Amino acid sequence: MDINSLNPQPTNFLTPAVYIVGAGPGDPDLLTVKAQKILAKADVIIFADSLVPQQILVGVRADAEIIPTADKTLEEIVPLMVERVRQGKSVVRLHSGDLSLYSAMSEQIQALINAEITFEVIPGISAFQAAAAALKVELTVPGLVQTIILSRVSGRTGIPDSEDLANLAAIKASLCLYLSARHLEQAQEKLMRYYPSDTPVAVCFRLGWPDEKIWLIPLHEMAQHTKQENLVRTTLYIISPALAASQYHQTARSRLYHPEHSHLFRSISDGQS
C-alpha cells in the first residue's frame, strides 16, 4: 500500500479526510502551528473531552460540529469519522499529548485504512517536554545522564516482562512515568532498589491546564505525596538525577559549543590547536 495515498496534500482548504491531531498537554499555545490551522478550518472536531481541555477549542469555526468522546467506544467513534468524511467533510480527531505515546491511535488508523478513508497525523508536544520546560531543566546532562525513558507502570494494560519498572530503573536514566498514579507504592519500591531515596521526583499534575501543579519531592515521598494530593489521573512523574544537578547548578558543560570542539561548521583556531 502506498502510504502517500492516505495523506492529503497541503491546500488552502481542508480536503475531506480525518486529521488525527495531538493537542499537547493542554495549553493552547503549545499546539503546533499546523494543528492550529487545521482546527480553525475543520468541519467536524471529535475530541477526547476527558483529557483535552475546552480551551484547546478556542479559535475553531463557530459552525463546526463538536463531538466529545469520553462516553464513546472505538466502535462508535470510527463510524462517526467515516460517515462525516464520506459526506465530504473534514474531520479532526483530537487527542491529548503526542500521538506516538499511549494515544490508542493505531487501532483507529487501521480502521480508517480498512474503510479506505484518507487521513493525516499531526504530532503534538508530549507532557514530558512541557514538564521539562516548566521546570527549566535539561533531562540529559553530560557526565550524569544521557538517556530518557518514557514508560508506565503495569495496570489494566499490561507491559512486557522485559519492560518491568525494576529493569528500567536499573539504567538510572531520566525516567518519565505516564498513567501510573494509581500504582505508586509498587512503583516507588521498585525505583528505590536503584535510585537513591533522595533522588528528586517532579510530580506534574494536569500540565498546561489552568489548574496545573508541579511539586519537586524526594523519591521516598512519591507514593505518600500522590495519596495526600489524591492524584489518580492526568499526572506525570519524572525521576531523574538531572533534576538535582539543575537544582544545585552542578551540570557539566557540553562539548557542543566548547571552544576546543571542532566540527563540520567550526574549526579550532590556530591559537587553540
Rank of each mutant, 00 (worst) to 15 (best):
D63N: 15
D43V: 04
A252P: 02
W215K: 00
I171S: 04
I238W: 01
V137C: 14
F265M: 03
V52M: 05
S254F: 06
T235P: 07
P160C: 04
G271Y: 07
S100L: 01
P142D: 09
Q272N: 04
L14T: 08
G155C: 03
Q54A: 13
F265C: 02
Q272F: 13
A130P: 04
G158I: 00
G124K: 13
L14C: 11
L39N: 13
K34H: 14
E212V: 03
D198T: 08
E120L: 07
Q146S: 15
A244K: 15
A64W: 11
G24M: 00
T73M: 10
V232S: 14
H220A: 05
D27Y: 06
H225M: 10
R233W: 06
V137G: 12
V203G: 09
K213V: 08
Y237S: 00
H249Q: 14
F128T: 05
L135M: 14
D98Q: 04
P241A: 04
M222S: 12
Y237H: 03
A245H: 13
V141P: 10
E189D: 12
V78Q: 13
R233K: 15
S100R: 01
N7P: 01
F265A: 06
L14G: 11
T147H: 01
A40W: 11
F128C: 10
L14F: 10
T199D: 10
D43M: 06
I56H: 15
L31D: 12
V21A: 03
P53N: 06
F119S: 06
E120I: 02
R255M: 12
A133N: 09
R84C: 09
E138L: 08
H225V: 04
A202C: 10
I171N: 02
C176Q: 01
H183N: 15
M1L: 11
A187K: 13
L184D: 04
Q9C: 07
I38E: 13
K34S: 12
S5Q: 14
T199V: 06
G97M: 13
L219E: 10
G271R: 09
P259A: 08
I20L: 15
Y194N: 08
V153A: 15
S151H: 11
P123D: 10
M105F: 11
D164N: 07
L231F: 12
Q188T: 02
L256K: 05
Q272P: 00
I77L: 10
E107S: 14
K41T: 02
R253D: 07
